[in-house]
Write a protein that binds this DNA or RNA. Structure first.
Lengths: 196, 196
DNA sequence: CGTGAAAGGCATTAGCC
DNA sequence: GGCTAATGCCTTTCACG
């Protein structure tokens, strides 16, 4: 399994800065041909490193409501359910689940709905406490650092190294530290899918 | 000053989902010609609604460290300074400042640096309390809702309506509720620029 | 993994309504 | 503002190393 090299990182950095920059342009910067860049972008997409291409929209110009940041302390084991319920809400943009059963999210909601917008989306059985804060400003700096490719094994959670394998299940890439983890995962995956 | 119509919103929505989708494709969806879509995208860029095009990178696959979410309670009036100091840190991706002197940020830091990475970037005189949490997972759903275009006047802060004006200063768009606000702002801008 | 050449698709311009 | 037609660029495919 291949990781990322400096060229991959440079391509990512250039695309982060401007995702519509022509590949031929990028090719020149990284000393490759345009098809080579195209191939690498494809590979990064297959790997799941590139999830997609988007627009950076300045939401501060689009008053569809008030930006809020919500902190939710979940009942033990219920943070995942809360995250799933909220991620699908149209007004919600970011959802962060932290290891300590806390879910933090940002959303833009109509002024009048600030106190109540969670009511219809949250099962309060799952919630210990929550807090809605008004967002004053937001910064987003899509950087990369010296990022290296080192996914977690989907089965056991260990870091996957060069020995690892990738499987594509229903179009999504999964990584495994070894063949037996892969086999175990795929088997369970198939079973769950059959049941559904 | 023109705002956003349904077609603009639909274009934004389509681009949010896939910024490389061909304009001819988008054109078909919104019942326009490709050049018309191109013109609208240009206009949205000039307005500052579209800040740029980027890649959605899955940072959970790029272990340059551990994803953390940090909550900082600032001393009164110091939240802005904290935000500015942290926004420039390479490892930091999102910074949210809420109205109650709280700064919430996400970052990816080397395992060993989790407890200490803030030390070099934070003036602890400004901090009442802070908390570093490990992020288990992240969701990002760039949605739009029924977003309408209503920027704040750069001079007085009031919402700008159709009567408002746009000025472009050094390539960046600024909005004003009226001509006198614009004049005042531009004058101050020029002065500050001369001094620098 | 990479290249260069060719083909096909796409954004953009120009002229017009 | 929008359209159609035409131009020129960009991505992608292909054959090859």
């Amino acid at each position: 399994m291949r990781g990322l090299d400096d060229t991959d990182r440079e391509i990512l950095r250039l695309l982060l800065a401007d995702a519509r920059r022509p590949f031929s342009d990028i090719a020149e910067q990284v000393d490759l041909s345009a098809p080579a860049v195209s191939d690498r972008v494809d590979r990064l997409s297959e790997m799941g490193v590139i999830r997609g291409f988007t627009v950076d929209v300045d939401r501060s110009l689009l008053h569809s409501g008030v930006p809020v940041l919500v902190e939710i302390d979940a009942e033990p084991g219920r943070a995942g359910a809360i995250r799933d319920a909220l991620a699908d809400v149209e007004a919600v943009e970011h959802v962060f689940r932290t290891a300590d059963s806390r879910v933090t999210l940002t959303a833009t909601v109509p002024q009048s709905a600030v106190p109540s917008f969670l009511d219809s989306h949250l099962d309060f059985e799952d919630v210990q406490r929550y807090d809605v804060r008004l967002v004053a400003d937001t910064e987003w700096t899509p950087g990369l650092g010296t990022a290296d490719f080192a996914p977690d094994c989907a089965e056991c959670g260990n870091t996957v190294d060069e020995e690892g394998v990738r499987s594509t299940l229903d179009g999504d890439p999964y990584y495994f530290c070894c063949g037996s983890c892969e086999a175990r995962f795929v088997e369970q995956y198939e079973t769950l899918k059959e049941e559904a």
